[in-house]
Amino acid sequence: MTLTDADRAKFAALADRLIPAYRNMPAASAVDVQHAMLDLALQARPELAEDFARGLAACSAETPSESINALFRQDHAAFGAVNLMAVAAYYMTDEVRRLIGYPGQESPPYDPHETPGYLLDGSLERVVRRGPLYRPTPR
């Protein structure tokens, strides 16, 4: 799917209606959702290209609020695609991830031989002391 600069600008305007600046969080366009992250999102979900293109075509960059609300009421699939692309692109950006404290699916080190806290603080001991729960096989 090839997007023109005008398409990207329109998408950014729509995305800002869904994700405006708020407290410490930037608006969608401020983290550039309309470029690399939109491309990545569309590439990840090629089956949404049609709905997305239809949604974009139905909207106007001049009246983003009216457009996105009309789309929401009239074409659920197209609205869903535009919405998902905006939200996904937004939360894939480094800046937003830094702000919400999400490092991505990392692999934090751990020591499997370390004694777990529940063995030290007595909590598991209490479970054991309450005794077996299972009903044995009837003989």
Partner: peptide, 15 residues
């Protein structure tokens, strides 16, 4: 309204 359902609501939900 889209802006009410998403918008600040989305930011608050994720936070």
């Amino acid at each position: 309204r889209v802006e009410d359902a998403w918008g600040e609501n989305l930011h608050n939900l994720v936070a």
